[in-house]
Design a protein around this nucleic acid. Sequence first.
DNA 1: CGTACCATTGAGATACCTCAACAGTGGTGG
DNA 2: CCACCACTGTTGAGGTATCTCAATGGTACG
Lengths: 235, 235
Amino acid sequence: MKPIIHPADYYRRLLGLQSHALKRLDESVAIVKLNRDQQVPEEDGTAGRWYYVIAGAVRRATIRPDGRRQILDLMLVRDFFFVGDSETEEPIEAITEETVLAGYSAARLENLCERDRQFARELREITFQSLERSRRQLIVLGGVTTADKVSAFLLLLEKRYGDQRGDIRLPITRYDLAEYLAVSVETVCRAFSDLQQRGIISLIGIRTVRITDRGALEHQIGRKYPNAVSDTIAA
Amino acid sequence: MKPIIHPADYYRRLLGLQSHALKRLDESVAIVKLNRDQQVPEEDGTAGRWYYVIAGAVRRATIRPDGRRQILDLMLVRDFFFVGDSETEEPIEAITEETVLAGYSAARLENLCERDRQFARELREITFQSLERSRRQLIVLGGVTTADKVSAFLLLLEKRYGDQRGDIRLPITRYDLAEYLAVSVETVCRAFSDLQQRGIISLIGIRTVRITDRGALEHQIGRKYPNAVSDTIAA
DNA sequence: CGTACCATTGAGATACCTCAACAGTGGTGG
DNA sequence: CCACCACTGTTGAGGTATCTCAATGGTACG
C-alpha cells in the first residue's frame, strides 16, 4: 500500500541527526513505524522506553471525565519522549500516517549512563527538553483568546516546519489542535479564519499556513480581550 | 521579628522525610530561608541546583508580552525542583513568608549518580515528578470553566494540605491562583463563591476551604458549559 | 456513490474579561 | 489611638469570546 522504506535508510538518517549520545546506541535502536491512532509500544521489562521522532508526530493524551480528550504532550520531528511508568492511563499514539520512531531500551540507556559521563549529561538534557516542551504548552494554554493560542502554536511550529517563505505545513488536524489547545474545533477554525481575514496569515491549501505578518502574529500572543474598552496595559 | 528555628531542626526534619537518596547528601545540603517574592538562589557553578521544599511554597513564573504574569510551576511542601539552565527568563521566587528550602548542588548529585545506581534511579524519579507536576497543571488548565480549574486545583491540594475533615489551608493568594490558572482574579473569586453557594465547599476563614461535597467537586471537573441546552455528554 | 472524516460558518446561550467600587487586613507613622 | 496606605478579597455591570448545536462543503477511500 505504501512505499516501504528500508530500515537502513531510517537508520542512516538517524545517525546523521544524532549526537554522541545515540551513536553509542546503534546496536540497540529499534525502528518503529506507525499509522494514525496506533499506540506506541510501551513495555520493555520495567524501565520503559525512550523514543525519538524521525518522521510524523505523536501525542500523549488523557481522557477527561466528560469524555473530552486532551493532548498533554505533542511530539514532533526530532523530539525525544519517554514511555513507561504507566500507572497513568495516558495512551501515547501516532498522530499522522507514516510516523517513524527510533526506540531505545531505557534500561540500556541507564546502564550507559553509569559508564559514560557525557552520555549521562545528554540523557539529562533530553529529559529537560520534555519539561521545556511541557512548559511551552502551558504558555500556549495561558493565552486567553484562542487566536492567541493558535498564534503561539504557529510560531512554535515555524521553528520546526517552516521553510524560508514562512510557510508551515501543519502536521496535525484541526481536531487534534483543538484537543491540544483545550478548546472546541469550531473555535480553532474561527481563529484561523480570523487571523486570515486580518491579513496575518494565509491558508495555502487546507494544511499549509503562510505567515504574512509575523510582527502581528507575535504581538497577538498574550493580548487579552484586545478589543476591550481600555487599552492601557499594566506593566 | 519571627521565631528563629534552628537550622538543625530543619535538618532533622529533612532527614526524617528523605529517602535513601538524600541521606547521602547530608554534608552538602544548604538550608535556605526566604520570604515572599524573594528569589531562589540560582547559580552553583554551571550545573544548577536542586531544591526540596521543606515549608512554604515556590513559583516559577513567566511574564507575558502583555505584562500578565503566568505561573508555570508551583512547588509545594515535599516537592523537588531544579534551578538552572537559566537561558530562560523565568524568575523562581518564594510565594509565602517563611519558605524554607533544602538546596543541593546539581554537580554533586550528578557525581553521586555515577557511583550509586540506586541514587541515580531516585534522581530520575525526582525529575519525572517535575514532569508529572507539569502535566497535572496542563490538565487543570484544560478545564473550560474556571470552576473546573479551581475544583481540580483543590483536589490536588487536598492530597497535600488536607486534614481528616477535608479542610484545606490554601498556601497561595487568589492572585497567585489566578496566575496559576491563567484567568483573572475576579473570576477565581466568583468560582469560589459559586462553589460555596452550591454547597460543594465552605470557606472557613479566608484561606481555608472545607470540602463538603467531594463527589460534586470531582464531577465538576471537565464539565464543559454544564448549563448548556443539551446535557447529553458524548462518550 | 456512499461513507467517514476533516473543515468551515451561523445562531443562540453561557462564561469570561475589564472596569469599578468596596470590605477586610496588616503595617506604618503622626 | 487613629489615619493612612498597600495588599488581598469580593461583588456588580457591560462588553467580548467561547461553547453547543446545527448545517454544509470538501476530500479520501472502498
